[in-house]
């Protein structure tokens, strides 16, 4: 955990940065329940290409989304090193497969820029903002939009 944020006016929010297709993304830490190592999934019939399948999370059957495939990159070839970020959105629990989870970022709202891009395109519609850091641009993943993308595809 970083030290207390100094800015009083706009409290900092914490984001977990993750690597998807070699790029930096981040997820609001309030949405993240836990991280788990990759374990084999069970294929779901009639599923969109970015849905890797489903796995058992302590008795809950949860779908696993390949974020790389969702954002239009090549599908990941899962290995033991891949991480599943377990997120919660409106009582749904979903796993997001990523290459790695890096660090926790403290961000104040004024550091966040709007993401340009068409709403129609899942590769951009699930990004709700950009953060510029010394290391480059980090895209903020909109968990709600990821879940709706999954629900919409029938």
């Amino acid at each position: 955990m970083p030290p207390e944020a100094e800015t009083l006016a706009a409290p900092a929010e914490l984001y977990a940065t993750v690597i998807v297709a070699g790029q930096d993304f981040c997820i609001d830490i309030k949405r993240v329940r836990e991280n788990r190592r990759w374990s084999p999934t069970t294929t779901l019939p009639h599923a969109p290409h970015y849905l890797m399948g489903t796995m058992n999370l302590r008795g809950e059957v949860i779908p696993i989304i390949d974020l790389a495939a969702l954002f239009g990159f090549a599908r990941i070839e899962p290995t033991d090193r891949h991480v599943i970020v377990i997120i919660e959105h409106e009582e749904k629990i979903i796993g997001l497969a990523v290459e790695a989870v890096r660090r926790i970022l403290s961000v104040t709202p004024d550091q966040i820029r709007d993401a340009p891009g068409a709403k129609r395109d899942t590769s951009t519609s699930c990004i709700r903002g950009l953060i510029t850091t010394d290391g480059g641009v980090i895209r903020i993943i909109s968990v709600g939009d990821v879940v709706s993308a999954m629900e919409e595809v029938l």
């Binding site: 019939p45 059957v61 009582e91 749904k92 979903i94 029938l154």
Partner: peptide, 8 residues
Amino acid sequence: KNYRHIAG
């Protein structure tokens, strides 16, 4: 609950 209904 976490995904949706699947035909079949």
